[in-house]
Design a protein around this nucleic acid. Sequence first.
DNA 1: GGTCAGATGGACT
DNA 2: GTCCATCTGACCG
Length: 200
Amino acid sequence: MDLTSLLAQSDPVAIARQLIGVELISEADGQETSVLLTEVEAYYAPHDLASHARNNTRTARTEVFWAAPGSCYIYTIHTHMMLNVVTGPVGTPHAILFRAGAPHRGLETIKARRKMTKLKRQLTTGPGVLAKALGIKDKTLYGSDLLDPENPLRLEVTTPPVTKDGIVATKRIGLGVKAGEWAEKPWRFHLKGSPFVTPG
DNA sequence: GGTCAGATGGACT
DNA sequence: GTCCATCTGACCG
């Protein structure tokens, strides 16, 4: 299964599972850094009230949800950048949030960006932290193609797929009250046994 | 382990 | 202008 076909599938929950272990590579600041994804969450709008594209809410911020699968959705919360990839056929507002990864390439650069000296969980765990580790500090790459080998931020399959029983499904994190029952969906996936996973 | 303030873009009145 | 958010780091025990 190549990523282009995977991300074009119609079920973001099934896709999210298969993104665990995929490499997310950044060339920000002329430095190559990457992580192997250890934690992601699926967002299944328009029905999913936890998604920014709930009820087909289409604004300048959410416009990219309707673009091609593989497009990058970046938004800010407080002072942090959140990285997502759009999935599904064009016109279905689905996305998957990257929440954590295990450092893979450019460990020294990652540690410098995080102002940390040791390899530990907090280095690349948490969506805002992950973006910072990869040097993503603004929305420049909003709408760019994460499947394009020329894009400074991209996804690549570089390691064998993680087996099904190596992945754990739990509830999503940090959703507001208006998500209601959708907050209960087990649409957060993480690599079993990995230290690079958010608590909860 | 738990609690809590910071800090800012974006949606909506 | 107001309200809120897919959060983090610091602080306290």
